[in-house]
Design a protein around this nucleic acid. Structure first.
Lengths: 214, 214
DNA sequence: GTCTATAATCGGATAGAC
DNA sequence: GTCTATCCGATTATAGAC
Protein backbone atom coordinates (compact mmCIF):
# COMPACT_ATOMS: atom_id res chain seq x y z
CA UNK A 1 0.00 0.00 0.00
CA UNK A 2 2.63 2.43 1.05
CA UNK A 3 4.76 1.32 -1.87
CA UNK A 4 1.91 1.63 -4.32
CA UNK A 5 1.00 5.02 -3.03
CA UNK A 6 4.55 6.23 -3.22
CA UNK A 7 4.84 4.73 -6.71
CA UNK A 8 1.82 6.65 -7.83
CA UNK A 9 3.19 9.77 -6.29
CA UNK A 10 6.63 9.41 -7.82
CA UNK A 11 5.00 8.58 -11.15
CA UNK A 12 3.08 11.79 -11.22
CA UNK A 13 6.09 13.58 -9.83
CA UNK A 14 8.19 12.19 -12.67
CA UNK A 15 5.61 13.24 -15.19
CA UNK A 16 5.55 16.67 -13.69
CA UNK A 17 9.33 16.92 -13.71
CA UNK A 18 9.48 15.89 -17.33
CA UNK A 19 7.04 18.58 -18.40
CA UNK A 20 8.70 21.14 -16.17
CA UNK A 21 12.03 20.41 -17.79
CA UNK A 22 10.52 20.69 -21.25
CA UNK A 23 9.11 24.10 -20.30
CA UNK A 24 12.45 25.19 -18.87
CA UNK A 25 14.35 24.10 -21.96
CA UNK A 26 12.01 26.07 -24.19
CA UNK A 27 12.10 29.08 -21.86
CA UNK A 28 15.90 29.07 -21.64
CA UNK A 29 16.24 29.17 -25.38
CA UNK A 30 13.62 31.88 -25.88
CA UNK A 31 14.87 34.08 -23.04
CA UNK A 32 18.36 33.81 -24.58
CA UNK A 33 17.15 34.74 -28.05
CA UNK A 34 14.64 37.43 -27.19
CA UNK A 35 15.37 38.60 -23.67
CA UNK A 36 12.93 38.62 -20.77
CA UNK A 37 10.37 41.09 -22.09
CA UNK A 38 10.82 39.86 -25.64
CA UNK A 39 9.69 36.40 -24.63
CA UNK A 40 5.98 35.81 -24.12
CA UNK A 41 4.78 32.92 -22.04
CA UNK A 42 2.55 32.05 -24.99
CA UNK A 43 5.67 31.52 -27.11
CA UNK A 44 7.24 29.32 -24.43
CA UNK A 45 4.02 27.31 -24.17
CA UNK A 46 3.79 26.88 -27.93
CA UNK A 47 7.39 25.68 -28.20
CA UNK A 48 6.75 23.26 -25.33
CA UNK A 49 3.59 22.03 -27.02
CA UNK A 50 1.16 22.95 -24.24
CA UNK A 51 -1.33 25.71 -23.71
CA UNK A 52 -0.41 29.01 -22.17
CA UNK A 53 -2.81 28.38 -19.31
CA UNK A 54 -1.29 25.01 -18.63
CA UNK A 55 2.15 26.57 -18.45
CA UNK A 56 0.81 29.01 -15.89
CA UNK A 57 -0.23 26.05 -13.79
CA UNK A 58 3.41 24.97 -13.52
CA UNK A 59 4.90 28.43 -13.26
CA UNK A 60 2.30 30.83 -11.89
CA UNK A 61 4.10 33.96 -13.09
CA UNK A 62 6.56 34.86 -15.83
CA UNK A 63 8.98 36.04 -13.15
CA UNK A 64 8.93 32.66 -11.41
CA UNK A 65 9.74 30.96 -14.71
CA UNK A 66 12.60 33.34 -15.38
CA UNK A 67 13.96 32.94 -11.87
CA UNK A 68 13.87 29.17 -12.19
CA UNK A 69 15.68 29.29 -15.55
CA UNK A 70 18.47 31.37 -14.02
CA UNK A 71 18.63 29.14 -10.95
CA UNK A 72 19.03 26.06 -13.12
CA UNK A 73 21.68 27.76 -15.25
CA UNK A 74 23.64 28.62 -12.15
CA UNK A 75 23.21 25.17 -10.56
CA UNK A 76 24.55 23.48 -13.66
CA UNK A 77 27.46 25.87 -13.99
CA UNK A 78 28.43 25.79 -10.32
CA UNK A 79 28.37 22.01 -10.30
CA UNK A 80 30.80 21.85 -13.21
CA UNK A 81 33.16 24.48 -11.80
CA UNK A 82 33.01 23.66 -8.09
CA UNK A 83 36.01 21.41 -7.67
CA UNK A 84 38.40 22.91 -10.20
CA UNK A 85 40.54 25.30 -8.20
CA UNK A 86 42.54 22.79 -6.18
CA UNK A 87 45.39 24.76 -4.56
CA UNK A 88 47.58 21.67 -4.41
CA UNK A 89 47.39 20.71 -8.07
CA UNK A 90 49.73 21.89 -10.79
CA UNK A 91 48.71 25.48 -11.65
CA UNK A 92 49.02 25.05 -15.41
CA UNK A 93 46.83 21.94 -15.29
CA UNK A 94 44.20 23.68 -13.19
CA UNK A 95 44.13 26.67 -15.51
CA UNK A 96 43.76 24.50 -18.61
CA UNK A 97 41.06 22.42 -16.94
CA UNK A 98 39.25 25.63 -15.98
CA UNK A 99 39.37 26.89 -19.55
CA UNK A 100 38.24 23.52 -20.87
CA UNK A 101 35.32 23.29 -18.43
CA UNK A 102 34.07 26.75 -19.16
CA UNK A 103 34.42 26.32 -22.92
CA UNK A 104 32.56 23.05 -22.65
CA UNK A 105 29.72 24.83 -20.91
CA UNK A 106 29.66 27.43 -23.69
CA UNK A 107 29.44 24.64 -26.22
CA UNK A 108 26.94 22.39 -24.51
CA UNK A 109 24.73 25.02 -22.92
CA UNK A 110 24.95 28.06 -25.16
CA UNK A 111 21.41 29.18 -24.33
CA UNK A 112 22.13 28.98 -20.63
CA UNK A 113 25.28 31.07 -21.09
CA UNK A 114 23.36 33.66 -23.07
CA UNK A 115 20.49 34.00 -20.64
CA UNK A 116 22.98 34.65 -17.88
CA UNK A 117 24.96 37.07 -20.04
CA UNK A 118 21.84 39.04 -20.97
CA UNK A 119 20.88 39.36 -17.34
CA UNK A 120 24.35 40.64 -16.40
CA UNK A 121 24.61 43.04 -19.36
CA UNK A 122 21.27 44.55 -18.42
CA UNK A 123 22.79 45.32 -15.02
CA UNK A 124 21.68 42.15 -13.18
CA UNK A 125 18.68 44.11 -11.89
CA UNK A 126 16.72 40.91 -11.38
CA UNK A 127 19.42 38.40 -10.39
CA UNK A 128 22.12 40.55 -8.81
CA UNK A 129 21.49 39.28 -5.29
CA UNK A 130 21.93 35.66 -6.35
CA UNK A 131 25.12 36.51 -8.22
CA UNK A 132 26.43 38.23 -5.13
CA UNK A 133 25.59 35.25 -2.94
CA UNK A 134 26.45 32.34 -5.19
CA UNK A 135 28.85 33.43 -7.94
CA UNK A 136 31.02 36.09 -6.39
CA UNK A 137 32.25 33.92 -3.48
CA UNK A 138 33.32 31.23 -5.94
CA UNK A 139 35.20 33.72 -8.11
CA UNK A 140 36.83 35.23 -5.03
CA UNK A 141 37.93 31.78 -3.91
CA UNK A 142 39.49 31.13 -7.32
CA UNK A 143 41.28 34.45 -7.18
CA UNK A 144 42.60 33.53 -3.74
CA UNK A 145 43.96 30.27 -5.11
CA UNK A 146 45.75 32.12 -7.92
CA UNK A 147 47.22 34.55 -5.42
CA UNK A 148 48.34 31.70 -3.21
CA UNK A 149 50.27 30.25 -6.11
CA UNK A 150 51.93 33.62 -6.66
CA UNK A 151 52.85 33.90 -3.00
CA UNK A 152 54.42 30.44 -3.22
CA UNK A 153 56.30 31.37 -6.38
CA UNK A 154 54.54 28.68 -8.37
CA UNK A 155 53.32 31.14 -11.00
CA UNK A 156 54.39 34.61 -12.08
CA UNK A 157 52.90 37.65 -10.37
CA UNK A 158 50.00 39.05 -12.35
CA UNK A 159 46.71 40.65 -11.40
CA UNK A 160 44.75 37.54 -10.38
CA UNK A 161 41.36 39.24 -10.52
CA UNK A 162 41.78 40.52 -14.04
CA UNK A 163 43.31 37.22 -15.11
CA UNK A 164 40.10 35.53 -14.02
CA UNK A 165 38.04 38.20 -15.79
CA UNK A 166 40.06 37.53 -18.95
CA UNK A 167 39.63 33.79 -18.65
CA UNK A 168 35.91 34.18 -18.07
CA UNK A 169 35.49 36.61 -20.96
CA UNK A 170 37.40 34.53 -23.53
CA UNK A 171 35.51 31.34 -22.79
CA UNK A 172 32.10 32.93 -22.30
CA UNK A 173 32.31 34.67 -25.66
CA UNK A 174 32.13 31.35 -27.55
CA UNK A 175 28.53 31.15 -26.44
CA UNK A 176 27.58 34.82 -26.32
CA UNK A 177 29.28 36.03 -29.50
CA UNK A 178 28.86 32.84 -31.51
CA UNK A 179 26.60 34.69 -33.96
CA UNK A 180 29.41 37.09 -34.85
CA UNK A 181 32.08 34.39 -34.85
CA UNK A 182 30.20 32.25 -37.35
CA UNK A 183 29.94 35.27 -39.64
CA UNK A 184 33.69 35.83 -39.45
CA UNK A 185 34.45 32.15 -39.93
CA UNK A 186 31.90 31.85 -42.72
CA UNK A 187 30.22 28.85 -41.14
CA UNK A 188 26.59 28.22 -40.21
CA UNK A 189 27.68 27.33 -36.68
CA UNK A 190 30.74 26.72 -34.54
CA UNK A 191 32.23 23.24 -34.91
CA UNK A 192 34.09 20.92 -32.58
CA UNK A 193 37.31 21.95 -34.31
CA UNK A 194 36.60 25.59 -33.55
CA UNK A 195 36.26 24.77 -29.87
CA UNK A 196 39.47 22.75 -29.96
CA UNK A 197 41.30 25.66 -31.57
CA UNK A 198 39.85 27.98 -28.97
CA UNK A 199 40.84 25.72 -26.09
CA UNK A 200 44.39 25.47 -27.36
CA UNK A 201 44.82 29.21 -27.89
CA UNK A 202 43.13 30.33 -24.68
CA UNK A 203 44.89 27.64 -22.64
CA UNK A 204 48.26 28.65 -24.07
CA UNK A 205 47.55 32.33 -23.46
CA UNK A 206 46.56 31.84 -19.84
CA UNK A 207 49.43 29.48 -19.05
CA UNK A 208 51.97 31.75 -20.74
CA UNK A 209 50.53 34.73 -18.88
CA UNK A 210 51.58 33.17 -15.56
CA UNK A 211 54.70 31.33 -16.76
CA UNK A 212 57.73 32.20 -14.68
CA UNK A 213 60.62 33.86 -16.50
CA UNK A 214 62.64 30.64 -16.28
CA UNK B 1 17.96 86.81 -48.27
CA UNK B 2 19.57 83.57 -49.27
CA UNK B 3 21.83 83.77 -46.28
CA UNK B 4 18.97 84.46 -43.90
CA UNK B 5 16.95 81.61 -45.35
CA UNK B 6 19.85 79.18 -45.03
CA UNK B 7 20.56 80.44 -41.52
CA UNK B 8 17.01 79.73 -40.53
CA UNK B 9 17.24 76.32 -42.08
CA UNK B 10 20.50 75.40 -40.37
CA UNK B 11 19.14 76.74 -37.11
CA UNK B 12 16.18 74.45 -37.17
CA UNK B 13 18.41 71.66 -38.42
CA UNK B 14 20.71 72.21 -35.47
CA UNK B 15 17.79 72.19 -33.08
CA UNK B 16 16.56 69.01 -34.68
CA UNK B 17 19.98 67.38 -34.41
CA UNK B 18 20.25 68.31 -30.77
CA UNK B 19 16.94 66.73 -29.90
CA UNK B 20 17.67 63.71 -32.07
CA UNK B 21 20.91 63.14 -30.21
CA UNK B 22 19.18 63.47 -26.86
CA UNK B 23 16.66 60.85 -27.96
CA UNK B 24 19.42 58.57 -29.20
CA UNK B 25 21.38 58.88 -25.96
CA UNK B 26 18.33 57.95 -23.92
CA UNK B 27 17.44 55.12 -26.28
CA UNK B 28 20.97 53.70 -26.26
CA UNK B 29 20.99 53.49 -22.52
CA UNK B 30 17.53 51.98 -22.25
CA UNK B 31 18.04 49.46 -25.03
CA UNK B 32 21.25 48.41 -23.26
CA UNK B 33 19.55 48.03 -19.90
CA UNK B 34 16.28 46.47 -20.97
CA UNK B 35 16.76 45.09 -24.47
CA UNK B 36 14.68 45.97 -27.52
CA UNK B 37 11.29 44.65 -26.41
CA UNK B 38 11.95 45.65 -22.80
CA UNK B 39 12.26 49.28 -23.83
CA UNK B 40 9.08 51.20 -24.58
CA UNK B 41 9.18 54.31 -26.70
CA UNK B 42 7.25 55.98 -23.90
CA UNK B 43 10.20 55.30 -21.57
CA UNK B 44 12.66 56.74 -24.08
CA UNK B 45 10.48 59.81 -24.53
CA UNK B 46 10.15 60.32 -20.78
CA UNK B 47 13.92 60.07 -20.25
CA UNK B 48 14.42 62.54 -23.09
CA UNK B 49 11.83 64.89 -21.61
CA UNK B 50 9.44 64.90 -24.57
CA UNK B 51 6.12 63.26 -25.32
CA UNK B 52 5.83 59.86 -26.87
CA UNK B 53 4.07 61.36 -29.89
CA UNK B 54 6.81 63.90 -30.38
CA UNK B 55 9.41 61.15 -30.34
CA UNK B 56 7.44 59.39 -33.04
CA UNK B 57 7.73 62.50 -35.14
CA UNK B 58 11.52 62.13 -35.14
CA UNK B 59 11.61 58.35 -35.37
CA UNK B 60 8.40 57.11 -36.96
CA UNK B 61 8.80 53.55 -35.69
CA UNK B 62 10.55 51.82 -32.82
CA UNK B 63 12.52 49.78 -35.34
CA UNK B 64 13.86 52.91 -37.01
CA UNK B 65 15.03 54.21 -33.63
CA UNK B 66 16.74 50.93 -32.79
CA UNK B 67 18.37 50.75 -36.21
CA UNK B 68 19.69 54.27 -35.83
CA UNK B 69 21.09 53.51 -32.37
CA UNK B 70 22.98 50.50 -33.72
CA UNK B 71 24.19 52.46 -36.76
CA UNK B 72 25.59 55.18 -34.51
CA UNK B 73 27.25 52.62 -32.23
CA UNK B 74 28.91 51.02 -35.21
CA UNK B 75 29.94 54.34 -36.77
CA UNK B 76 31.62 55.41 -33.56
CA UNK B 77 33.37 52.09 -33.07
CA UNK B 78 34.54 51.75 -36.69
CA UNK B 79 35.93 55.27 -36.67
CA UNK B 80 38.04 54.49 -33.61
CA UNK B 81 39.29 51.14 -34.89
CA UNK B 82 39.69 51.89 -38.59
CA UNK B 83 43.35 52.81 -38.80
CA UNK B 84 44.81 50.52 -36.13
CA UNK B 85 45.98 47.46 -38.01
CA UNK B 86 48.94 48.95 -39.88
CA UNK B 87 50.89 46.00 -41.34
CA UNK B 88 54.13 47.98 -41.30
CA UNK B 89 54.09 49.00 -37.65
CA UNK B 90 55.60 47.03 -34.81
CA UNK B 91 53.22 44.12 -34.05
CA UNK B 92 53.43 44.47 -30.27
CA UNK B 93 52.65 48.19 -30.51
CA UNK B 94 49.69 47.59 -32.79
CA UNK B 95 48.30 44.89 -30.51
CA UNK B 96 48.62 47.07 -27.43
CA UNK B 97 47.04 50.01 -29.23
CA UNK B 98 44.20 47.75 -30.35
CA UNK B 99 43.59 46.59 -26.78
CA UNK B 100 43.76 50.14 -25.49
CA UNK B 101 41.34 51.48 -28.11
CA UNK B 102 38.79 48.77 -27.53
CA UNK B 103 39.05 49.09 -23.74
CA UNK B 104 38.61 52.81 -24.09
CA UNK B 105 35.42 52.27 -26.03
CA UNK B 106 34.18 49.92 -23.29
CA UNK B 107 34.91 52.59 -20.74
CA UNK B 108 33.58 55.64 -22.58
CA UNK B 109 30.62 54.06 -24.33
CA UNK B 110 29.50 51.20 -22.13
CA UNK B 111 25.86 51.52 -23.20
CA UNK B 112 26.85 51.38 -26.85
CA UNK B 113 28.90 48.24 -26.22
CA UNK B 114 26.03 46.63 -24.39
CA UNK B 115 23.40 47.39 -27.01
CA UNK B 116 25.63 45.79 -29.61
CA UNK B 117 26.35 42.82 -27.35
CA UNK B 118 22.67 42.23 -26.65
CA UNK B 119 21.89 42.25 -30.35
CA UNK B 120 24.68 39.72 -31.07
CA UNK B 121 23.78 37.44 -28.15
CA UNK B 122 20.18 37.34 -29.33
CA UNK B 123 21.50 35.99 -32.61
CA UNK B 124 21.82 39.31 -34.48
CA UNK B 125 18.43 38.64 -36.01
CA UNK B 126 17.88 42.34 -36.62
CA UNK B 127 21.38 43.61 -37.40
CA UNK B 128 23.14 40.54 -38.82
CA UNK B 129 23.28 41.94 -42.35
CA UNK B 130 25.00 45.11 -41.21
CA UNK B 131 27.49 43.12 -39.14
CA UNK B 132 28.23 40.98 -42.17
CA UNK B 133 28.74 44.03 -44.36
CA UNK B 134 30.52 46.42 -42.02
CA UNK B 135 32.12 44.52 -39.13
CA UNK B 136 33.20 41.19 -40.57
CA UNK B 137 35.35 42.67 -43.39
CA UNK B 138 37.21 44.76 -40.81
CA UNK B 139 37.84 41.77 -38.55
CA UNK B 140 38.97 39.69 -41.54
CA UNK B 141 41.39 42.43 -42.54
CA UNK B 142 42.85 42.47 -39.03
CA UNK B 143 43.20 38.70 -39.11
CA UNK B 144 45.01 39.00 -42.45
CA UNK B 145 47.43 41.49 -40.95
CA UNK B 146 48.18 39.11 -38.06
CA UNK B 147 48.75 36.25 -40.50
CA UNK B 148 51.01 38.42 -42.61
CA UNK B 149 53.17 39.04 -39.55
CA UNK B 150 53.36 35.30 -38.94
CA UNK B 151 54.32 34.62 -42.55
CA UNK B 152 57.09 37.20 -42.19
CA UNK B 153 58.25 35.65 -38.93
CA UNK B 154 57.55 38.86 -37.02
CA UNK B 155 55.30 37.09 -34.49
CA UNK B 156 54.87 33.49 -33.40
CA UNK B 157 52.43 31.28 -35.25
CA UNK B 158 49.08 31.14 -33.45
CA UNK B 159 45.51 30.94 -34.64
CA UNK B 160 44.98 34.54 -35.72
CA UNK B 161 41.20 34.32 -35.83
CA UNK B 162 40.87 33.00 -32.31
CA UNK B 163 43.48 35.47 -31.12
CA UNK B 164 41.27 38.27 -32.37
CA UNK B 165 38.22 36.64 -30.78
CA UNK B 166 40.13 36.50 -27.48
CA UNK B 167 41.19 40.12 -27.75
CA UNK B 168 37.67 41.22 -28.57
CA UNK B 169 36.17 39.17 -25.74
CA UNK B 170 38.55 40.36 -23.04
CA UNK B 171 38.10 44.04 -23.86
CA UNK B 172 34.38 43.90 -24.59
CA UNK B 173 33.69 42.26 -21.25
CA UNK B 174 34.70 45.39 -19.34
CA UNK B 175 31.52 46.97 -20.67
CA UNK B 176 29.23 43.95 -20.90
CA UNK B 177 30.14 42.24 -17.63
CA UNK B 178 30.84 45.34 -15.61
CA UNK B 179 27.90 44.55 -13.32
CA UNK B 180 29.49 41.27 -12.29
CA UNK B 181 33.00 42.71 -12.08
CA UNK B 182 31.94 45.44 -9.70
CA UNK B 183 30.39 42.79 -7.45
CA UNK B 184 33.65 40.82 -7.41
CA UNK B 185 35.73 43.94 -6.85
CA UNK B 186 33.32 45.24 -4.23
CA UNK B 187 33.06 48.64 -5.86
CA UNK B 188 30.01 50.62 -7.02
CA UNK B 189 31.59 50.97 -10.47
CA UNK B 190 34.78 50.30 -12.38
CA UNK B 191 37.47 52.93 -11.89
CA UNK B 192 40.24 54.32 -14.05
CA UNK B 193 42.68 52.14 -12.14
CA UNK B 194 40.66 49.05 -12.99
CA UNK B 195 40.89 49.89 -16.67
CA UNK B 196 44.64 50.49 -16.36
CA UNK B 197 45.09 47.11 -14.67
CA UNK B 198 43.01 45.51 -17.38
CA UNK B 199 44.96 47.18 -20.17
CA UNK B 200 48.25 46.03 -18.68
CA UNK B 201 47.19 42.43 -18.16
CA UNK B 202 45.38 42.03 -21.50
CA UNK B 203 48.18 43.79 -23.36
CA UNK B 204 50.80 41.55 -21.75
CA UNK B 205 48.75 38.43 -22.44
CA UNK B 206 48.26 39.23 -26.10
CA UNK B 207 51.86 40.26 -26.67
CA UNK B 208 53.20 37.21 -24.87
CA UNK B 209 50.85 35.01 -26.85
CA UNK B 210 52.62 35.98 -30.06
CA UNK B 211 56.11 36.47 -28.66
CA UNK B 212 58.70 34.45 -30.57
CA UNK B 213 60.57 31.82 -28.57
CA UNK B 214 63.71 34.00 -28.65
C1' DG C 1 -4.22 18.98 -14.58
C1' DT C 2 -6.14 20.86 -18.56
C1' DC C 3 -9.49 23.62 -20.87
C1' DT C 4 -12.58 27.98 -22.18
C1' DA C 5 -13.37 32.53 -21.33
C1' DT C 6 -12.16 36.84 -20.00
C1' DA C 7 -10.40 40.65 -17.22
C1' DA C 8 -7.08 44.36 -17.11
C1' DT C 9 -3.25 46.60 -18.85
C1' DC C 10 0.24 48.14 -21.87
C1' DG C 11 2.56 49.23 -26.08
C1' DG C 12 3.08 50.81 -30.86
C1' DA C 13 1.13 53.56 -34.01
C1' DT C 14 -2.27 56.96 -36.42
C1' DA C 15 -5.45 61.12 -37.13
C1' DG C 16 -6.10 65.62 -36.90
C1' DA C 17 -6.19 70.25 -34.44
C1' DC C 18 -3.15 74.08 -33.52
C1' DG D 1 6.78 70.49 -34.57
C1' DT D 2 4.00 69.63 -30.78
C1' DC D 3 -0.28 68.33 -28.58
C1' DT D 4 -4.88 65.68 -27.61
C1' DA D 5 -7.34 61.82 -28.47
C1' DT D 6 -7.78 57.30 -29.79
C1' DC D 7 -7.46 52.73 -32.07
C1' DC D 8 -5.90 48.14 -32.01
C1' DG D 9 -3.35 44.20 -31.03
C1' DA D 10 -0.70 41.67 -27.72
C1' DT D 11 0.33 40.15 -23.07
C1' DT D 12 0.04 38.77 -18.27
C1' DA D 13 -2.84 36.82 -15.28
C1' DT D 14 -7.30 35.08 -13.16
C1' DA D 15 -11.93 32.58 -12.71
C1' DG D 16 -14.24 28.67 -13.07
C1' DA D 17 -15.99 24.40 -15.64
C1' DC D 18 -14.66 19.60 -16.46
Amino acid sequence: MDIQASDKLSDSARRRDKLENAILAAATRLFAECGFEGTSIAAVAERTGISKQNLLYYFPTKNSLYKRVLDDVLDDWLERMAHLADPGAEPADVLRAYVAAKLRFSREQPWASRVYAMEVIGGAKFYGDQIRERVVPLLRRDIDVFEGWMADGRIARVDATHLLFALWAMTQSYADFAAQMTLVLGRPELTGDDFEDAERLIGDMVVRAVATAA
